[in-house]
Simulated assay, not measured.
Amino acid sequence: MGIFEPHHLILIIIIALIIFGPGKIADLGGQLGRGIRDFKKAMHEEEAPAQAQTAPAAEPVREIRQAEANVVEPAAAAKEVAQSH
C-alpha cells in the first residue's frame, strides 16, 4: 500500500509516548497550535494594510480613463483644421 500504514502510525505514536511522555507531547502540540495561530494572525494583519493601500488607487485610474476618452486622434484633429481653412 503506502509507506505508512495504520499499524505503523500506531507504533510511532507508542514510541513517541515512551520517549517523551504524555505531558511533553501535549506541550509540543500546544506550542505547534500556538505557532500556527500566530502565523495565521500575522498573515491576516499583512493582508489588511495591503488592501487599504490598493483601495485609493481606483480614483487615479478613473481619472486616467476619463483623460484618455477626451484625447483627440491626431489624424482627426488635422482633418478638422484642414476643413476649417
Rank of each mutant, 00 (worst) to 15 (best):
E73M: 08
E45K: 10
H8V: 07
K40T: 09
I18N: 12
G30L: 11
I64M: 13
A57E: 13
N70S: 12
A69V: 00
H7L: 04
A77G: 14
H7W: 03
R34E: 06
I15A: 15
E59K: 10
L9V: 10
R62S: 02
H44M: 11
E5N: 11
F39E: 13
A75D: 13
A42M: 12
G35Q: 07
G33C: 01
I19E: 10
P22Q: 07
I64Q: 12
A69M: 05
V61A: 15
Q31T: 04
E47Y: 01
D27S: 08
A16M: 10
A55G: 06
A77R: 15
E5M: 07
F20D: 09
I64R: 13
M43H: 14
N70T: 08
E73W: 06
K41N: 08
D38F: 02
P6Y: 02
F20C: 08
G30C: 03
H7A: 05
A75Q: 09
I14F: 02
V72K: 10
I14Q: 11
E45M: 08
P74T: 01
A69Q: 09
K24Y: 10
E59Q: 11
T54D: 05
G30F: 09
K41E: 09
G29V: 04
E47N: 00
E45C: 03
G23I: 02
S84C: 07
P60E: 09
G23V: 04
L17C: 12
G35R: 08
I3P: 00
A75H: 08
G23R: 14
K40C: 04
E80L: 14
P22F: 06
Q31V: 02
K41A: 14
E45T: 05
L9N: 13
P60I: 04
Q51A: 15
Q51T: 13
R34W: 02
A48G: 04
S84N: 12
E68C: 08
G29R: 03
A75S: 09
L32T: 08
L32I: 06
Q51R: 15
A69D: 08
E68G: 10
H8E: 06
I12L: 14
L32Y: 06
A48D: 12
V81I: 15
A16L: 14
E80G: 12
